[in-house]
Design a protein around this nucleic acid. Structure first.
Lengths: 212, 212, 212, 212
DNA sequence: CATGAATGAGGATTCATTCAT
DNA sequence: TATGAATGAATCCTCATTCAT
């Protein structure tokens, strides 16, 4: 999709373009993001951006598809690290999520906006890709946990995947946008949240339905 | 804010106006919602809508402030119903949430869009009001649970409020927008989700930190 | 033009309507004046105002035609007061102008706006009426001054009328809108301005061209 | 304020845009001027005008700030011309005013509308700038006249500035909008008006108050 | 008579996109 | 290849006026 002309740009300029555009999408979502503002802040011609990416959607696609693959990498690394127990991998997955949010806060903001905005372009494709990868990853973890005896043999794997995903996804929201839950807890620090999450999972999974 | 002229309209027309506008906001969020589309679907003049509500924000305020008070009512009813145990009240609260989502799906869609869209007008006010009411309600429930001996006496109430709120809020997301977690679980029915939620809470609360 | 229904209103309400409308025209001119704002401040129905005056122009006509006749009255009184010299009458005319401005500041503001706004409705009629009355009045004064020997017999009466009118009109501007000349003189009080005006006229008229 | 894009336009087009817009403001004032009419007459897209000037006020600012500096230039030239007496400079100032009005009648019409229209944007800034420049100029002239002995040494300079400014400003009104005084004088030609003005000043200044 | 709901043309402004230079 | 001027549909909003109740 992206034209060669963008790939041939000097690294520094290429990064500036992506950063500025990512910020714009993170702050305003898709439709309310303004190409005008982006090129104005960048100090480049409007036509250039369209040469690089074809149109607004092309720009967004370029940014977010890279984000998706960046998000997948650490999960693979955890999965492929030998010698870890199931709950250690879960905990590391959670921490990997927080690290991604810390490293790319604007990309996560875009993701959150996309979650509930049905008109976000490419929404189905991107969300499907993220969910699919996450589910596949969790399924492998859970199956490993069953093999290792850390999880009950009769566990309904699909239901466990569903629950794990929901819990991890939603708790990451609270981590990324503390204001969501603020005013509620005096000071819910990351370790405290992680401990609460771990406790929930450790006990909760025991009650997840088993296959009939 | 609302001009009298709207309150004086025939009930049926008033409801049509609110329904159509609510749908528009639910589908497109605030900025991308179009007054033009609303009046076109309603078959009324553009000026009329502005007479009713002053401006776009006035229309949104009218719709959503009613939603907020509609959301608070059932919680009060549960709190004031005598003879219920703590976990029964929690379960009923969860069901009240699902009933609200079922009765006003578009209002809940607006809420979800507002959650992560920092530019939503009146966002701080409305979210603050909702969170405040919910927190106060949960605090009363928990304190009652402690008095009744159903919860440990040393429980850190504020942290419990925080955790309960986060869990209930996030699980309601999954209920309202099943596509969020779909593709993951084959068919996570409401009772199943409710059971999973209950299990999490029952075990999880035991591990919530106690006051030092 | 004005319907009977307005004349039949209670005095107090009638006056409120006129005052509020006059203020609106004075502040915003004709086109920028808003019927909406007027009825809003009055707390009466929009339809009523249209019943009273037919349309916006009818309202303005009612207001300003009364202003014109109010402006003419004191001039007639000065003219008909016996035993005054020419320059005394001129000075009193100037003071009558300042009194009118003090008594009806908003009407004078409307007049000033109308002066240079070619699109003011009824402008030609009203300005012509005012100028005609003023010219006729000044002509009578000057002819009296010539008869009394206070002005040279060969004075070009029409040119003197022109000059007197221009001077009085323009100096009244400075009186009504002091900010026009402020920042220039430290504190040009009314008596000082009156003295300067008198001096100018006393000497200036001696040089006004005489009929060839 | 003005974007580069306008400065890069071909001279002829740039001039057409400014002329058409100036005419619109001159005919209708600020608020009643219509961007729609301007672009329609120009045959360009609405968006283009906003690209050039940002918004309506930017367009007006561009036009009128140039007018202000155009108005100042000839005054500086007169001041810096050696070998002229005080009254010669005054007469030339008056003629410079008439020349400006003749060369830019529409700009002067805008100025007159701005004088009494409190809602004109940038009114305070522009009027202040014009009055300040004029006052400074007149002050220099008068101080020169006092040095040369053409004006009494005890003259209250500030009061003389005030009076001169008021007289020149108001007489220029009559020159620019003859209809203001028409119907009064049969045919007040420029030389006749100039002579009348000169006479007034020559005699009048002698009576301007001297410092205490 | 008084009311005020309904109208719809017109206001300024923003926007993604195109294309000649 | 990069530019940025041009576009025109769409945005929210205001207004004087009409007319059924």
């Amino acid at each position: 999709m992206t034209k060669n002309t963008f790939e041939n740009l000097p690294d520094e300029k290429r990064q500036r373009v992506l950063d500025e555009a990512t910020t714009e999408f993170a702050e305003h979502g898709y439709h309310q993001a303004s190409i005008n503002r982006i090129v104005e802040r960048l100090g480049i011609a409007k036509g250039s951006l369209f040469k690089y990416f074809g149109n607004k959607q092309g720009l967004f696609e370029h940014i977010f598809s890279r984000a998706v693959s960046d998000f997948k990498k650490p999960l693979k690394a955890i999965r492929d690290t030998p010698g870890l127990g199931f709950f250690e991998r879960i905990e590391q997955s959670f921490l990997a999520g927080t690290r991604f949010v810390d490293a790319h806060p604007n990309l996560y903001r875009i993701y959150l906006k996309m979650l509930f905005n049905e008109n976000f372009p490419l929404r189905e494709r991107f969300l499907g890709e993220i969910r699919g990868a996450h589910a596949k990853y969790l399924r492998q973890l859970i199956e490993g946990g069953v093999r290792d005896g850390q999880l009950p043999a009769a566990l309904d794997v699909e239901m466990a995947v569903f629950t794990l995903h929901a819990v991890m996804d939603r708790f990451l929201q609270g981590y990324a946008v503390p204001s969501l839950d603020n005013g509620l807890a005096p000071a819910a620090s990351l370790p405290e949240q992680a401990r609460a999450l771990a406790a929930f999972l450790r006990h909760g999974l025991a009650d997840i339905p088993t296959q009939e």
